[in-house]
Design a protein around this nucleic acid. Sequence first.
DNA 1: CACGTCGATGTAATCGATTCCACGAGGATC
DNA 2: GATCCTCGTGGAATCGATTACATCGACGTG
Lengths: 345, 345
Amino acid sequence: MASIKDVAAEAGVSVATVSRVLNDHPSVSAEARARVLAAVEALGYRPNAVARSLRTDQTHTLGLVISDVMNPYFTELARSVEEEARALGYSVIIGNADERPDLQDHHVRNLLDRRIDGLLVSPTDGGSPLMLDAARAGTPMVFVDRWIPGVDVPVVRADGRGAVRDLVAHLHGLGHRRLAIIAGPAATTTGRERVEAFREALGAHGLELPDAYIGQGDFQAESGRRVTEGFLDLPEPPEVVFAADNLMALGALDAVRARGLRVPDDLALAAFDDIRWFVHTDPPVTAIAQPTGELGRAAVRALVDRIEGRAGESVTLPARLVVRRSCGEPPASPEPSPVTNRSQS
Amino acid sequence: MASIKDVAAEAGVSVATVSRVLNDHPSVSAEARARVLAAVEALGYRPNAVARSLRTDQTHTLGLVISDVMNPYFTELARSVEEEARALGYSVIIGNADERPDLQDHHVRNLLDRRIDGLLVSPTDGGSPLMLDAARAGTPMVFVDRWIPGVDVPVVRADGRGAVRDLVAHLHGLGHRRLAIIAGPAATTTGRERVEAFREALGAHGLELPDAYIGQGDFQAESGRRVTEGFLDLPEPPEVVFAADNLMALGALDAVRARGLRVPDDLALAAFDDIRWFVHTDPPVTAIAQPTGELGRAAVRALVDRIEGRAGESVTLPARLVVRRSCGEPPASPEPSPVTNRSQS
DNA sequence: CACGTCGATGTAATCGATTCCACGAGGATC
DNA sequence: GATCCTCGTGGAATCGATTACATCGACGTG
């Protein structure tokens, strides 16, 4: 592959001049510029990003470590992150932690070794020494969706409290009184917060959240299935389960189906995170929708701000309830199909 | 961030010795090794992958350019690719082409500029000059899922012919005679092949595939919706539509639902690509399942073989039909829920 | 005892870019 | 006509690693 030296030789100038042309530095004669450009064209030259990064100490790359690529919520997040980053002149390297702290550390280390300019993380746990060190060492960093308390890093996330209140009011209005939750890992903020928001909202209606109605999941489908089976085996099973993410809701559907039961007649279901398939499941699933695309874009903007020496503030956006039929009684009017929402959201 | 010089100074040795310890070169005394390791520990030193890559001309990185991250099929592919690559000591940088040739080129160029060791591509089109040049220039490359004819690059893919024949036999057995297809872009191999396989299978039953029953989609949901609406507006609408991927099947569901019609009574539906949500849609969707995880792993193995100077052959694996209820008449026994299949597939 | 071998180590070249500094030519200013 | 800029350019240092080559001491052998 041709290097800058080859171009310089071909154009009959020095490498310095070639470099100036490529970075359009002002003081290059029109003639030299033309010769260099011709040589670049002739040789099919492309600058070596590795060498450039070594010299400039910038990679124009962001690292994104997400909890689980197979989760459509994170997939959409990743997509919007890449889109916004590209618009701002950055590339993105994605690391998939699969909800495993060891894998998360692997990817953080790998990204740091590659000298990415900044790191976007949705932490799987309470924060490994590695990540805390990186934050303290001044690596530009932003948390997205989940965060680690006590670390001085901006957080971009959705606030689900209002939507959870709306959900509980909806459920209460439908006559449900025994409400259970499939929680996420207590080591994650979203794992804890969603339970707390749910408990609080129940309290506002004079309802309790007994321990038996808190199932410990891990944001993966299999745990949703296991927890739901536990609920169904209870002497007094809940009337509703609220899954703290969409994959655990999928697991819950599996469990209900495996017993030959029906949603919502035998057990109602609601989920945190709205995904397109929920419109077409049997029955369509009532869910709390996050402004996923907005979150991804805001996170990138905050991170790039930090990288380029500007402020880079935390952002919190509201989530909202989308009522469908999985908790009983269909909504007033059928919702318009979301197929075309793709690039908007 | 500490560099190798700092470590050398701290340990009281030369940078060469530090490098030898780090790459465990044999001729280093136990004492020097211990001192270097202590210094590395003390400084929290991590080698700069950028500098290393520049010198060794290897990045230990694979590029993966996929057609659409939001498509669960490609998400799963990406996941298995990353997994296998990690097992072989490589990282993966994913580029999402979103079915757009210009974006695909953007990512290929970006990956090439970063001097990735090899490229895994699922081409969105018939092959841009850029990609053809890269292949010709000897960049280690493997096509996965889709490929470009006439280019000397190994292909790892699933063969759907057998499964499509099974599907058509199934449909014919249910009494369906007017069968339509939502095709993918003719510029892609999978777009063309699936139509051909379908036409062939129909022929075996003495059925034709009239032009009116071939809808031109682009592998995205919106096109599935549009094409399905066209079918429904026909004087003689088809009894079944076969969507060439899962997103267009989603769009078809949207279209049917928007008209207040029912699957399979008013229109039966089948899809290429099986995804977990198809078990829980209303009704569960009959689909052709690819061995996605295997494809991803085989593709990585082939690519790494090429990179490391071994052969790296093409691989074709069979797809299989999974019958559910979206074409009529439930299957004999309810299929076991696939929740636990995650790490197997 | 001299010499060859081997193991451990350091010096310096190198990868491909960017960028500071020096230099020469040409033009403006007094 | 001397001085001083300005502009275009090239030389060379630099980023942080790897590695060929040189060196040096210790040791084995004839």
